[in-house]
C-alpha cells in the first residue's frame, strides 16, 4: 500500500506538471523565462520543452531515489515520503510560478518579476505537503520514553575513566540540504541566496555527536563538529533512552519544546539527559543505551 503510494503520487504529480505546461503551451513565449535575478527581473531563458523537461527530470530522479530508499530502509518510510511530497509540491509550485510569469508574454524578457516572497511561499507549501506525506506514510506523532525505574546502567569497573561516543546521521536532513542548495544555485538572486542558506542550516543539522567522559559531555553538530558545547555531569541527574519520532518534536533541527531542548537529526533512539535544573537535553545518537548507561553509572558513583 505504501509502495503503491510512492508510484501513484509521483505519476500524478508528473501528469499535473505536464498539464500545467500543456494548458498554457501556446500562450508561453519561445524561449520562456526560467531564471530570475536579484532584482526579481527574468535573466535567463530556455525553450519551453527544456523548462518542462528540467522540472520533470528532477521530479523523476527524486521519486526513483525515494522509492529505492524506502525499499532499502522501510523504517524511514515516513521521512522519505515526507521528502517526496515536499519536493513534489515545491516543483509543482515552481512550474505554476514559471508558467504564470511567462503566460501571455511575447518575449521572455517581459515575464513577471519573481521575488523573495513567492519563494518563501513555495517553501512553506513544500513543508506543509511534506508533513502530509509523513502522515500518509503512517508517521505517528509520539515518542516513547523508557519506563521510569528502568534506567540503563553500564557495568564497567571505572565509569569515571571510561569514554563513550555516539553519533547520529540524518539521511533526510542531508538530502534536503543538498537538494535545497542545488536549487539555490540554480535559481540565482536573493531567492537563491536564501535557499543556499536554508540548505546550509539543513546540512548543519545532518549530524550530531555526543562524547561522554568522567566530568562532562560534549555535543557537536554537523560535519565540521561546529558549533559544539559542553554539559558538566555535575548538573546531570540521570540519562534515559527515548525512541524519537521527529514529528513529536515538530520536525528536524534544534527543537525547543516544553521541558526539553532537543537536537533531532533522525528518527529512532536518542539520549535524553535529565538535569537537576532546567529543561532536559535530547540528542538523536546511535548506541544511546550504553551512553545513558555510562552517564548513570558516573552520576550514581558520584552521589555514593
Amino acid at each position: 500500500m505504501r509502495r503503491l503510494t510512492l508510484v501513484i503520487v509521483p505519476a500524478l504529480v508528473l501528469l499535473l506538471l505536464g498539464s500545467v505546461f500543456a494548458a498554457f503551451w501556446s500562450e508561453l513565449p519561445e524561449p520562456m523565462a526560467i531564471h530570475w535575478g536579484l532584482n526579481g527581473e527574468p535573466n535567463g531563458s530556455a525553450p519551453r520543452l527544456v523548462a518542462f523537461g528540467l522540472l520533470a527530470a528532477i521530479h523523476v530522479a527524486v521519486a526513483v531515489a525515494v522509492y529505492q530508499s524506502v525499499r532499502r530502509s522501510p523504517g524511514e518510510g515516513p521521512s522519505f515520503t515526507a521528502g517526496l511530497f515536499g519536493i513534489s509540491a515545491l516543483l509543482l509550485g515552481v512550474a505554476l510560478l514559471m508558467v504564470s510569469a511567462n503566460q501571455g508574454r511575447g518575449d521572455w524578457r517581459q515575464a513577471d518579476e519573481v521575488g523573495l516572497l513567492q519563494v518563501l511561499v513555495l517553501l512553506l507549501v513544500g513543508f506543509l505537503f511534506g508533513t502530509l506525506g509523513w502522515v500518509v506514510a503512517g508517521g505517528r506523532a509520539a515518542s516513547t520514553r523508557a519506563e521510569p525505574g528502568t534506567l540503563p546502567r553500564l557495568d564497567v569497573a571505572e565509569p569515571a575513566s571510561s569514554i563513550w561516543s555516539g553519533r547520529g546521521f540524518g539521511k533526510v536532513t542531508t538530502a534536503i540540504g543538498v537538494a535545497v542548495i542545488a536549487a539555490g544555485l540554480l535559481v540565482w538572486g536573493w531567492s537563491g541566496i536564501v535557499l543556499v542558506l536554508v540548505g546550509i542550516v539543513a546540512l548543519l543539522f545532518s549530524a550530531v555527536r555526543v562524547t561522554v567522559s568522567g566530568e562532562r559531555l560534549v555535543v557537536s553538530l554537523g560535519w565540521l563538529g561546529y558549533p559544539s558545547w559542553r554539559v558538566p555531569l555535575a548538573t546531570v541527574a540521570r540519562a534515559e533512552v527515548e525512541r524519537v519520532n521527529p514529528m513529536a518534536y515538530g520536525g528536524w533541527g534544534y527543537r525547543i519544546r516544553p521541558g526539553v531542548r532537543a537536537v533531532v537529526i533522525r528518527s529512532g533512539d536518542a539520549l535524553r539527559i535529565v538535569r537537576d535544573e532546567g529543561p532536559d537535553l535530547l540528542y538523536t545518537v546511535d548506541d544511546a543505551e550504553r551512553g545513558a548507561g555510562l552517564i548513570n553509572s558516573i552520576v550514581s558513583a558520584r552521589s555514593e
Partner: peptide
C-alpha cells in the same frame, strides 16, 4: 573514533 576535538573538549 571520537572526533579529536570532541574528545579533547570532553577530557579538558
Amino acid at each position: 573514533l571520537p572526533a579529536a576535538r570532541d574528545l579533547a573538549l570532553t577530557l579538558d
